[in-house]
Write a protein that binds this DNA or RNA. Structure first.
Ligand SMILES: [Zn+2]
Ligand SMILES: [Zn+2]
Ligand SMILES: [Zn+2]
Ligand SMILES: [Zn+2]
Lengths: 136, 136
DNA sequence: CTCGTGATGTTATCTCATAACACACCATCA
DNA sequence: TGATGGTGTGTTATGAGATAACATCACGAG
């Protein structure tokens, strides 16, 4: 997680705050647009740097299959270690749930057979949520 | 998989052929550049449409975390159904292995608790391959 | 042959993400 | 206190990835 000397600075706090307010996955450029409290947009690197930091600390996740970012809904939001994230994503309405992924040990075991040592794993499961199925 | 009336046409065959030749994950714009047998590049939609088709049939996978595409190394290359793909990706050299993912049933079970019905799942595990670890 | 569906070609544009560089901040230590 | 080094920020510009929209073509069914 955090290297010695790394700080939770204002722009990082702001981006985390926006992620937590939203609750759902957010596009990076939405964060950029909403960054300034006065309605002023940020410059892209400001937000992308903050996202990189938050993800490295396990406070946020990138959901690559939809190019979006979300605050971690697990205990990592409190500052615990990064973890293998798993997401259920509704392809109809976009509703996303973070669920407990498989044990890191089982991933490591599967990877060991191929000679890999795994640092980070993301699982992205696409389908339909209950509401969208009922809506037909 | 394929809807009635869908055909394996020339551009689709060409993109699949490029994926199979390469063996490793390929960037979409690499495929675009290499599309023409005479060195002429394709237009982006030509390749993206073929990739969408191949992925839908389970013959290729998109690896979202590295924005790349790869031919399926499982039996789906022969035309079987799409499946939950799992990848081991070396962050150093880019070497990628497709491994057997968890049983679809276990994914469905985990999703059911949240009310989701899952259609497609991708697992992307990042780390270091054996060669890169030995190289230090 | 005619029609409907699926597929292609083409242009243009959109979204997503990073490189590069100068400067500011902050703790530490002489 | 002021030099130093690591970390962070602001800014400009650009690179990379993907899709919208529309016209036209191919093909099998009836
Ligand atoms: Zn999480
Ligand atoms: Zn939904
Ligand atoms: Zn596969
Ligand atoms: Zn490697």
């Amino acid at each position: 997680m955090a290297e010695a000397g790394e700080r939770m600075t204002a722009p990082r706090r702001r981006v985390l705050s926006l992620l937590l307010e939203t609750g759902e996955p957010v596009k990076a450029y939405d964060l950029i647009a909403r960054f300034g409290e006065d309605g002023q947009a940020a410059k892209p690197p400001t937000v992308y740097r903050a996202l990189e930091f938050l993800e490295r600390l396990g406070m946020a996740h990138r959901i690559a299959s939809i190019s979006a970012y979300v605050a971690c809904s697990g205990s990592a939001a409190n500052g615990s270690a990064p973890h293998a994230a798993a997401f259920l994503i509704c392809d109809c309405c976009g509703a996303t749930r973070e669920i407990a992924g498989p044990d890191q040990g089982s991933i490591d075991a599967a990877a060991a057979g191929a000679g890999y040592v795994i640092a980070r794993t993301t699982i992205e499961a696409h389908g339909l949520c209950l509401a969208c199925r009922e809506a037909g």
